[in-house]
């Protein structure tokens, strides 16, 4: 097997950047939402949970279309954002947004399970010692959930790395801008003589996905039905 071509490297590098940023950007929101779902009872909770899982259940092309309606150049939110210089449509930033939306449920779910596993009696103890809700979150809940947070981040990264449908619908395929690795594979398949490239990128995709699931399994014991050992 020969080495990756320049275009293939470009697609790989873009996918890695998009997937990494999508996790970094969505992590604070995921931590907040996971905490709400784990620790608070409030009206509308069920609705939020249902909405949260939509990206997992909707056809990705529909999610991509919804993003276009919301964040496109003339979208409901996109139009206002464009005025302050934030543009998603047909930009790599849009690929990050699509990837973040698709990975979000996995991220929240893993973190929420980890939060649920934190002994709340420790939080009560911290409270008697004078710790505010924020301090308890930062010093007790998050550190005791590290493994779940890592597992969730890795899963969300893998999901984002493999994102295809929502991305191509929302930001199309622009080399170096939005043509991520899965999109590059798809396009190479319709080009004569593209087989070798398809095979090379497929191997790369396999390697990344496998590394991610193994890492997630190592860190996310509780998600996979094992007790956490700390």
């Amino acid at each position: 097997m020969t080495a990756l071509s320049i275009d293939e490297w470009q697609a790989l590098a873009l996918s890695l950047r998009v997937a990494t940023l999508s996790v970094v950007v969505s992590l604070p929101f995921a931590l907040g939402l996971a905490w709400l779902l784990s620790r608070r009872r409030f009206p509308g909770r069920l609705l939020i949970e249902a909405l949260l899982f939509l990206p997992l259940t909707l056809p990705p092309v529909v999610t991509g279309y919804a993003l276009l309606i919301l964040f496109g150049r003339h979208g409901w939110i996109g139009e206002s954002l464009a005025q302050i210089g934030i543009v998603f449509a047909f930009r790599w930033t849009g690929a990050v947004l699509a990837a973040a939306v698709m990975g979000f449920p996995l991220l929240v779910l893993s973190i929420r399970v980890a939060f649920d596993n934190v002994d709340q009696r420790l939080e009560r103890a911290a409270e008697t010692l004078g710790a505010s809700a924020w301090r308890r979150f930062v010093t007790i809940v998050v550190p005791l959930s590290t493994r779940g947070i890592i597992a969730g981040s890795v899963l969300a990264f893998a999901r984002a790395f493999g994102e295809f449908g929502a991305t191509i619908t929302f930001v199309s395929s622009i080399p170096g801008e939005t043509r991520t690795l899965p999109i590059a594979i798809y396009e190479l398949m319709s080009v004569s003589g593209g087989d070798a490239g398809v095979q090379r990128l497929t191997v790369v995709a396999f390697a990344v996905a496998l590394a991610a699931t193994i890492t997630a399994a190592v860190f996310g014991g509780s998600l996979w039905g094992r007790r956490r050992d700390d």
Binding site: A125, E127, T128, L129, S132, I140
Partner: peptide, 19 residues
């Protein structure tokens, strides 16, 4: 609120922070 009461509580089950 508990955080403002200034009590030092030694719980029966210890509850030391494991991390």
């Amino acid at each position: 609120p508990p955080a403002a009461r200034g009590v030092g509580y030694v719980f029966q089950d210890g509850r030391l922070f494991p991390h």
